[in-house]
Amino acid sequence: MHRDLSKRLGATALAAALCLGLAGTASAQAPQANTFDVIKARGQIVCGVNTGLAGFAAPDSQGVWRGLDVDLCRAVAAAMFGDASKVRFVPTTAQQRFTALQSGEVDLLARNTTWTLSRDTSLGFNFVGINFYDGQGFMVKRSLGLKSAKELDGATICVQPGTTTELNLADWFRANNLRFTPVVIERLEEVNQAFFSGRCDAFTTDVSGLAAVRSTQGPRAEEYVILPEVISKEPLGPVVRHGDSRWADLVRWVHFAMVEAEELGLTSANIDQHLNSQNPAIQRFVGAAGGLGQMLGVDNRWAYNIVKQVGNYGESYARNVTPIGIPRGQNELWTKGGQMYAPPMR
């Protein structure tokens, strides 16, 4: 950052060190009981979600959880119990989320979590799909006049600990021979407050998160701009524990069912009209043929229940993510130039 720009920014740096925050959770032991059977006996899924991220997981004015990740949890409940309401949401911070899953506090983590090699192996997790393709970016005040993240030399940057965001931030600044001072704050609400109050020159997280946070500012949202650089790949998806193959299979195919439904043109509004369809793919989907639910240990109408009660992937996206200003892009169906793709359901 040029000296005159540093003067314009003028934010006070807080002494804080980058800390991935994963090592302490790696040794935690997962419960030995079969998760699928435990959930069936309990009659309810316990789903770990964000503490509050618009478009993905946040309580509305009546306290009802809404969002793309929330819809996935409800879809799993619809598939397993035939009732999308049979789920309890547990808010988790970036640092708490892995311990919550490892310890058995939650059955499933659907919390804008990036799929990485280390998390998929040494932490004892299985990522069962990607429900949102994302990448890390930077947000700043429009009044600073910045056009590129490469103008952030010497800036203070708000970031959450225990995230891939921290490592990406350090790697990118080092690779570009730039300096920065991290302002590390655990809870998202406090990070937001720090950034919008001017304690940080920039805020970095996934671009979806930046858009979600900006959308909470109402008329002031136009005062902030997301810079053009996307500095990482962030494939976000649901996570379960190692050793729970039956449970992992169900969660995986619930996500795929929502994608497949959109491709087949099945929506919550029209699926009943297709119950007697002669299309073999639709017959298998609605449970009229193929016995797919039996293979997963649930009712053969499992996919029908998902779409009827929650909707397809496109419906969920339009209801939750589109309103915060994020176009489909990579998250469009593969038939429309995106990366959303379901293996054959047969």
Results as ranks from 00 to 15, higher is better:
residue 2 H to D: 15
residue 6 S to T: 10
residue 11 A to W: 00
residue 15 A to Y: 11
residue 22 L to F: 11
residue 30 A to Q: 12
residue 38 V to Q: 08
residue 48 G to K: 04
residue 51 T to V: 09
residue 53 L to R: 06
residue 62 Q to K: 15
residue 64 V to S: 12
residue 68 L to V: 07
residue 70 V to R: 00
residue 71 D to M: 08
residue 75 A to S: 13
residue 79 A to V: 08
residue 83 D to G: 03
residue 88 R to N: 13
residue 98 F to C: 03
residue 100 A to C: 09
residue 102 Q to P: 03
residue 105 E to S: 07
residue 107 D to Y: 03
residue 109 L to W: 01
residue 113 T to L: 05
residue 116 T to F: 08
residue 122 S to P: 02
residue 125 F to I: 04
residue 128 V to D: 00
residue 130 I to N: 02
residue 132 F to W: 05
residue 134 D to N: 08
residue 136 Q to E: 15
residue 137 G to Q: 14
residue 141 K to S: 10
residue 144 L to I: 10
residue 145 G to F: 06
residue 146 L to V: 04
residue 149 A to F: 06
residue 151 E to C: 08
residue 155 A to K: 07
residue 171 D to K: 10
residue 192 N to T: 12
residue 207 V to Q: 10
residue 208 S to P: 01
residue 235 P to I: 11
residue 239 V to E: 00
residue 243 G to T: 07
residue 251 V to Y: 04
residue 252 R to I: 06
residue 257 A to P: 03
residue 268 S to T: 08
residue 272 D to F: 05
residue 276 N to Y: 12
residue 278 Q to G: 01
residue 279 N to D: 15
residue 283 Q to D: 00
residue 286 V to T: 02
residue 293 G to V: 06
residue 317 Y to R: 04
residue 321 V to Y: 01
residue 326 I to W: 00
residue 334 W to C: 14
residue 336 K to I: 09
residue 340 M to E: 03
residue 343 P to E: 15
